[in-house]
Amino acid sequence: MIAFIIRRLVQAALVMLAVAFIAFAMFNFVGDPVAIMAGQDLPAEQRIELRKSLGLDDPTPVRFARFVGNAVQGKFGLSYRTAEPVGKMIVERLPATLELSVMAMIVALAVGIPMGVFSGLYPQHWLSRAMMTVSLIGISLPTFLIGILLILIFAVMLGWLPSFGRGDVIRIGGWSTGLLSVSGWKAIILPAITLGLFQMTLIMRLVRSEMLEVLRTDYIKFARARGLSNRAVHFGHALKNTLVPVITITGLQLGSIIAFAIITETVFSWPGVGLLFLQSVQAVDIPVMAAYLVAIGLLFVLINLIVDILYFVVDPRLRSQSAKAGAK
């Protein structure tokens, strides 16, 4: 188990190095930083001077090593657009995105799993058929359209929920949370639903097909033959066996929810990193884009690591396999 985690950490470090290299390459290939910083009429000698003082003359490996060294300490330089430290900008906005993403995932799981279980248990029921049809809509409608529709209904027509922003934010240490105020909760509902709807339908369909698969297995038949109650058979024996793929998908999707919250954040003017990224792209603010890339890469790697560990918790067969592998 520990050997496995160490192995995974080494892999994760390699992945991060690759991501960092791509981020680093952006500085070199998307325009010349000196040309961006300095005006057009700066004399050539001063240009060379500036280049030297910024360390841009050094060989590429040295510059990459310096970039990685700074990145590890959370230093990504100053934003071209606002002249603020990039690390600080990202860290300030990350809580908003993480809260939104986690809420979206909770909504997706809390609604998607029960719906999937139900439609897996009673595939012929009219409600299951209705859910399958509605889930098709959920999968095929683009996020921004759902967001705009929700705003139209609940913010404009009914006036129940705000259409933009995070509501009142309370700071706890370095973390700003909207989940401790009523207006914060009201503000997160619509974007969380918008962001989670696709995942919800995905999870529902996944759980449904896994349930149908598992219910056909011999151990379910044997569990019934032992006279266990339906609840024990369905939720104890069947559901647990569907969880491994659900965990995989949830992990991968949580990563992509965070990374692709950009659209939802834009629609709801949600002050998260997605919105920041979009503003930075418009302003060709390369340090922010590079830092965003590294931050999202790190989140993906961390989530995947957690998912791999969760497999071990759910499935005892993996535990003994790794024990055997470790003994060799």
Partner: peptide
Amino acid sequence: MRKIRGRQIGAIFQDPLTSLNPLYR
């Protein structure tokens, strides 16, 4: 019928490899 299964009539199936739930002790 569920109360009869296991209590009055037990069952053993063909393949012991798949008759037990792999995730439970």
